[in-house]
């Protein structure tokens, strides 16, 4: 089970490293949108705006980065995977891979963003927690929905339409958590947001593992 998942994971990583242009494309998309925001706004003093802009950038980058994960798989290759793996293992490794990519991308984003728009983050640990689990939650939902959208044939538009309403709980909790972290609000208030963000990750993971086998053979 674990060895299968790591095998698919290793395949994803090597195939992306051999052909790094798609990953580099997502990274470049992220950097350009960061820079466009910087040129447009130059300074952001309000914490709420600062955090909201950050998450909008993360959201667009993740749509861009995750959409390719199933679009790039041709029908024939999917049939081949179908003979090799259990669907649960397949979606689990896809989600882990997308989660890793997004966590790396959003960490880079957090670093560059806070360099461009200087802001004093009072609770750095909790901010990092919010970014990591927010990004992983987004990637879990989008991995699942990009399979749905790829079946329907209209990829990016449909993914956005399907994804935004479902992503909102995660985004909203992540925004509140990171905003409070920047403000340095005490743990006694923050723990419930931290818990809900984690629980949302678990819910998305469990739902995808249960539901993906039904989509698999289509």
């Amino acid at each position: 089970m674990i060895s299968k998942i790591t095998a698919i994971l290793a395949k994803e990583i090597t195939s992306d490293l051999r052909n790094p242009y798609t990953l580099a494309g997502s990274g470049l998309f992220l950097l350009s949108s960061l820079f466009v925001c910087y040129i447009a706004a130059k300074r952001i003093n309000v914490v709420a705006t600062w955090v909201a802009l950050f998450w909008i950038i993360i959201l667009f980058t993740s749509f861009n980065a995750v959409a390719k994960s199933f679009v790039s798989e041709t029908r024939e290759r999917m049939l081949y995977f179908y003979t090799l793996h259990h669907p649960g293992q397949f979606i689990a490794s896809k989600m882990i891979y997308n989660g890793l990519v997004l966590i790396v991308l959003s960490s880079v984003a957090a670093f560059v963003y806070s360099t461009l728009f200087s802001m004093e983050i009072n609770d750095l640990a909790l901010f990092a927690y919010g970014v990591v689990f927010g990004a992983s939650g987004i990637s879990f939902v989008l991995s699942m929905l990009s399979t749905i959208a790829s079946k329907a044939g209209r990829n990016l538009t449909l993914l956005a339409v399907l994804g935004l309403p479902i992503l909102l709980p995660i985004i909203l909790v992540a925004i509140t958590l990171t905003k409070n972290a920047v403000d340095g609000i005490d743990w006694s208030v923050q723990w419930k947001y931290a818990f809900v963000l984690f629980a949302l990750n678990v819910v998305c993971l469990a739902l995808s593992l249960v539901l993906f086998p039904y989509l698999w053979r289509e």
């Binding site: 929905l145 749905i148 329907a152 479902i166 739902l207 539901l211 039904y214 289509e218």
Partner: peptide, 11 residues
């Protein structure tokens, strides 16, 4: 039917 059922459960 299949895909929309999956989305409905998720939603």
């Amino acid at each position: 039917a299949k895909i929309s059922a999956v989305y409905n459960i998720f939603a």
